[in-house]
Computed example of a mutant assay.
Amino acid sequence: MTPEAILADLVACADLPGGSNASVAGCVQHHLRRAGLDPVVLTGPEGDRVNILATIGPRNTPGVILSGHMDVVSTEGQVWASDPFRLTARDGRLYGRGTTDMKGYLACMLAMIPELQAAGLQRPVHLAFSYDEEIGCRGAPHLIAALPGLIAPPAACIVGEPSGMRPVLSHKGKQATALVLRGRAAHSSQPEAGLNANYAGAEILLAIRDLNARLASEGPFDPRFSPPHSTVVAGVVRGGTAVNIIPDRCEIQFEVRTIPGDDPAAITAHVIQAARALVPDRVLTVSRHELSAYPALPPADDPQLADLLIRLTGHEALQSVSYGTEAGLFDAAGIPAIICGPGEIARAHRPDEFILPSELAECCAMMRGLARHLSAG
């Protein structure tokens, strides 16, 4: 089957992160088995979603992982010109949710199986499909943890996030946290009888703002990124139930994005420490829970993988991107990783997301070149 035909099947699966991915995982397994592969299905701890791994070539030899996530973001609140969950060809473009981020890459992986099988691989290609990437790379860690019992240590991983088929060498790390402040409710006519959680939240928001300003002025800095320093931003604030009730609860969701070498957990801990100093336990209580986290992808010391992708794609490498991926997780597990996939990140998560047939063809050409490389011994 062509990448376009497989992409149509994948786009029709409307599974969203945070719930069962039975539809899209079943579609992936169907195409793997149709090609004669026997995929390993790895159920996550949630019980209703799975990662999938399939191998072409000798399993006991170090090879290359092609990795992509099966989930897509919601279309809620968006106005599309066509059904987002039906692949629609229009004006030379293929429209549908996930076409660029990143079912286009998955379609190429699946479409290339016959050529990979016929290539006489001396080193294997592993096709890895993960879940819940869009809500914090939650599935990939379980897949990575299972690899030592399934295959020889991989030599490299190509994560196919949309990069215009340009090899990307690094990205920032991230940790997102929800901070909950609890006070005491009272009638608004007697504010002294309550403990206003929103006021405490306001103090903490200012502390987050000031910490971000300090990171911008004091660093550390890495000029490969824009901005060239770590950041901390408060993105969501929820507090109060009615204007005539002293609010007894305020929630602040904030995220830290760090340059390689900077620890997001350390910056998060600084925010928590500041919150506890501003809001002593004898007045209000402070609790927290992590929403998502993934490590940065640092530039590799060994340029071998980057040089290979530059040769296979014909594109010069990008030093860094601002978005995060599962590549940092593979790198942290000792598997050299790089980002390279079809489509442009600017189209992701938006209405009328699309990919070009030429971009799918370019991705397949990269995988064809990879097969030749792995067949050379």
Rank of each mutant, 00 (worst) to 15 (best):
Y131G: 06
G120R: 09
I65R: 03
P357F: 12
R372T: 09
A145Q: 14
E203D: 14
E353K: 12
A333R: 01
V50H: 15
H349G: 01
N60C: 09
L215M: 07
L284I: 05
P154F: 05
V64I: 14
P299Y: 09
R347F: 13
D210H: 12
H349F: 10
Q122L: 09
V236F: 11
N196E: 10
P17W: 05
E203P: 03
I267C: 01
S217E: 14
T241G: 15
P260E: 00
A365M: 10
T99H: 15
S226N: 13
G194M: 06
R276S: 11
G92H: 00
L94C: 04
D71F: 00
R276H: 12
P342C: 03
L211V: 03
D301M: 07
S130K: 04
A146F: 09
V40P: 03
T99P: 12
G324P: 08
N244C: 10
M109W: 07
S188L: 07
L181D: 08
S74Y: 06
L211Q: 13
M367R: 03
L374A: 07
I144F: 04
G334F: 11
S287H: 08
I259M: 02
A337W: 00
L284W: 10
L211T: 08
P336G: 05
A89P: 12
V283P: 04
R166T: 07
D263H: 06
A346M: 09
I335R: 11
T2D: 15
M112K: 09
R209H: 15
R257N: 03
I355V: 12
G334R: 11
N196H: 08
A371C: 11
A146H: 09
G68L: 01
S82L: 05
S292E: 14
A327T: 03
S163E: 04
G240F: 00
E255Y: 03
V50M: 04
D83Q: 01
S82D: 07
T241D: 15
D352G: 04
